[in-house]
């Protein structure tokens, strides 16, 4: 049976992990390779690296980092942030990334989704969508969730699927950082209308939130950052809990 995936997300700047991390067992908490290895060894089903470097130099560091991560870990990983061309994708895949994640570039140039899918296959392209609920409507935001667009979440999700995306990563801006649960209603609607997997993001705070996102939100995978980095939730015990709730996950098995 296909299982639900638990995916930690690491923010990378100039080749280093950023945001407050609380990994006392690691020698260097800023080293993405060591963190990736930790998660890979402790039950994560996949990893996402989000590059927030603003400079050319930082981007080059990312490529080297991808190679080191690929060498170290034996689970799939996705790289996102600042990707805007087929050439960017090629460089990351050649260095060992399994998938790439695009967001603003897809909004600016939707044809890019098709170009990437055609060249490398749908399975390697994740389209990230940041959306905010205003009154009843879910509006899509670009550029790190800051710039409003005229796109509606559900229409845009359908369009990226039709253009060849292999997965949708939906972050609710309303829920992100609240640690009060995922946007389950919108997620369930997305999951039912799309024929590609949906990764839920934004709002994870406790174990119950993961149970809800898989049952109520019908998500195929759940992504979180700080609850894992701060060890508020350990993936291995999270999985044990989900199994007792009869949610299919790959058990932690060293």
């Amino acid at each position: 049976m296909l299982t639900k995936r638990i995916i930690p997300c690491l923010d990378i700047k100039n080749g280093r992990t950023v945001k407050g991390l609380n990994f006392l067992s690691l020698r260097d908490v800023g080293d993405p390779v060591e963190l990736a290895q930790y998660y890979s060894d402790n039950g994560a089903d996949e990893l996402v690296f989000l590059d927030i470097s603003a400079t050319e130099e930082g981007r080059k560091t990312l490529t080297q980092l991808v190679l080191k991560v690929a060498e170290a870990i034996n689970i799939p990983f996705t790289v996102g942030g600042g990707i805007s061309s087929v050439e960017d994708v090629e460089l990351l895949l050649k260095n060992g990334a399994d998938k790439v994640c695009i967001n603003s570039a897809a909004i600016r140039n939707p044809e890019l989704i098709h170009e990437i899918a055609l060249r490398f296959g749908s399975q390697c392209i994740v389209v990230a969508i940041d959306a905010k609920q205003v009154n009843k409507d879910w509006n899509v935001f670009g550029v790190g969730g800051k710039t409003p667009t005229k796109l509606n979440l559900f229409n845009w999700a359908k369009e990226v699927q039709d253009r060849g995306a292999g997965e949708v990563l939906f972050t609710s801006i309303n829920h992100d950082g609240t640690k009060n649960g995922f946007a389950n209603e919108a997620l369930a609607k997305l999951s039912c209308m799309l024929s590609i997997p949906v990764i839920a993001s934004g709002g994870a705070g406790k174990v119950q939130d993961f149970e809800d996102v898989f049952i109520t939100g019908k998500a195929d995978a759940a992504l979180a950052a700080s609850v894992f980095h701060h060890k508020q939730i350990e993936i291995r015990s999270l999985k044990t809990h989900l199994i007792t709730k009869e949610i299919p996950v790959r058990p932690f098995d060293p």
Partner: peptide
Amino acid sequence: KTPQIGWN
């Protein structure tokens, strides 16, 4: 859902 993606 296709592709099938994940651990089976």
